[in-house]
């Protein structure tokens, strides 16, 4: 499923909303989520999961082509931990 599939499905589910309102709401929701992580805040959605930031320490990497050493600074990367309901539902069909 892509973002446009998601917009389509939400439009057919929410008759009271126009396509434009659904589109804007999807974009706004994703923007809020992105901004939240970019400002160092977590996202917590009950039943779905939580997004947080994991720190990666600075390290010396290598250019795979030339083999040269490259100093890589520390950084934060987004991390998702599925919630209980999502974990159970995804695994239910498998077992």
């Amino acid at each position: 499923m892509t973002k446009s599939d998601l917009i389509e499905r939400l439009t057919s589910k929410h008759f009271q909303l126009s396509v434009k309102e659904v589109e804007d709401s999807v974009k706004e929701t994703l923007m809020l989520m992105t901004n939240s992580l970019a400002s160092g805040d977590r996202i917590e959605v009950r039943g779905f999961g939580s997004f947080s930031l994991h720190y990666r320490a600075p390290r010396v990497g290598r250019n795979p082509k030339t083999g040269d050493k490259v100093e890589l600074g520390g950084k934060y990367v987004p991390h998702f931990k599925p919630g209980k309901a999502l974990r159970e539902r995804v695994n239910a069909l498998n077992t």
Binding site: M1, L30, P78, A92
Partner: peptide
């Protein structure tokens, strides 16, 4: 809307299909 936004993603994953939101992940 917010409820069904996350519910759509969950049910898609539950059905075994990946979800790809460009720009986000």
């Amino acid at each position: 809307f917010v409820e069904s936004f996350f519910e759509e993603i969950k049910s898609t994953l539950e059905a075994g299909s990946p979800v790809k939101i460009s720009g986000f992940g």
